[in-house]
Amino acid sequence: MNNTHFKKVCLLGDFAVGKTSLVRRYVDAQFSDEYLSTVGVKISRKHIEMTSRKTGELLRAQVILWDLEGSTLLASTNESYLKGAAGAIVVGDVTRQDTIANIKTHITAFLRINPNGFLVVSYNKSDLMAGPRSFVSPLSFEGHDRVLDSIVTSAKSGEHIEHLFGVLCRKLVDP
């Protein structure tokens, strides 16, 4: 176990965008429609394994997921929650335009504490989107070279959840 990598990954976003549901889907393969606000931080961990693209060796890691209390006031977020994080998943709710607009603020707050961290954006609750699978004003992350990808997800259906975490974990464990 001494060679195990620990990678702290934070989930950020406004309240009720589905951060806890994303973690629960990823870690426990479960989903509940019941909304329960997170207070403080919920810690989960996920053991992951992957083959190194460079050396071919098997890489093992423990991803420690910090599911933070949703807030639109990032200043109030305890900096210790973000401290030492290698990456973050920033989540917006596609049915609430304001939560999408706040994604950039969350990214900025994260990079202020962890300038070398990497991020992936989740446009969550795609199962609630009506009509064509696109939504209003997808954000542009030009200039944010730390943002690896923007992925439309549904914790409810499980759509793109593995991909969402996989993109970030690959970058953190097998850079």
């Binding site: 629960r24 207070v39 403080g40 931080v41 919920k42 810690i43 305890n78 210790s80 401290k83």
Partner: peptide, 10 residues
Amino acid sequence: PILVRNISRS
């Protein structure tokens, strides 16, 4: 010192 408040585990 570092203080992390309100940690919960499921």
